[in-house]
């Protein structure tokens, strides 16, 4: 059983940890529950509830739709359930996110990013980790130097991808006709669907390839 803390309505949950596993679970509730229970949650007005930890594993239960910011150096970040807008920056942590109903900005240097569904717009970046995101309702802007990119879009926003040497794959809904543009030095582009003007897919690479396919 963790300790329970007030979370003002609409406040952003901010978590800072050096290392360890961070697990945020969105569920039907109005407050925060933090495990281990000895952690202090500092309220900054009605806007932010901040939790700092050095190197322990953290489990935080919060209301559905909570906006979350997380900063870590290493470890692993897992967000379960349906959350609001998400901002995560990390050096080497892997990031897993179930569902965000808002916009997300996740950046890591060497970790991988895996997002099951994002209702808003997505900004994702990794230097060497792979990035995979599904069911994006808004714009997608993702970049990686040596990792791969795998994006599933609902075809409602622009998709802009940059991968220096990794591969890029965009999955689109059946029947959608995107306009595909690719700038590459030696990579290839392949589009399995008919092109049109429903939305735009822009790819850029040095040697990476772009493959557009139906979901």
């Amino acid at each position: 059983m963790g300790s329970r803390h007030e979370l003002p309505k609409g406040a952003r949950l901010r978590v800072l940890t050096i290392s360890g596993r961070v697990n945020v679970i969105a569920e039907e509730r109005n407050d925060l529950e933090v495990d281990p229970p000895d952690k202090r949650v500092k309220l900054d007005g009605d806007h932010v509830a901040e939790l700092k930890s050095r190197s322990s594993n953290l489990t935080i239960r919060c209301p559905i739709g909570t906006n979350v910011s997380i900063g870590t150096v290493s470890g692993h970040v897992k967000l379960e359930g349906s959350l609001g807008s998400i901002k995560i920056s990390t050096i080497s942590s892997g990031v897993e996110l179930d569902t965000s109903s808002g916009d997300i900005d996740i950046r890591t240097i060497s970790g991988s990013i895996n997002v099951a569904r994002c209702g808003g717009s997505c900004k994702l970046g990794s230097k060497s980790g792979s990035i995979r995101v599904g069911g994006v309702g808004g714009d997608v802007r993702a970049s990686t130097i040596s990792g791969s990119l795998d994006v599933e879009t609902l075809g409602r926003g622009e998709v802009s991808l940059k991968a220096v040497s990794g591969s890029m794959r965009v999955r689109i809904p059946h029947g959608k006709r995107p306009r595909v543009r690719m700038k590459t030095l030696s990579g290839s582009v392949k589009c399995d669907c008919e092109q049109g003007s429903d939305f735009e897919i822009k790819g850029g690479s040095i040697s990476g390839s772009l493959h557009v396919t139906e979901s």
Partner: peptide, 19 residues
């Protein structure tokens, strides 16, 4: 645009970042 608080290797205090 706030990116969020960031912890950086070798830097003790969190650094708030903005795009």
């Amino acid at each position: 645009d706030e990116v969020g608080p960031t912890l950086m290797k070798g830097i003790r205090d969190p650094v708030p970042l903005y795009r």
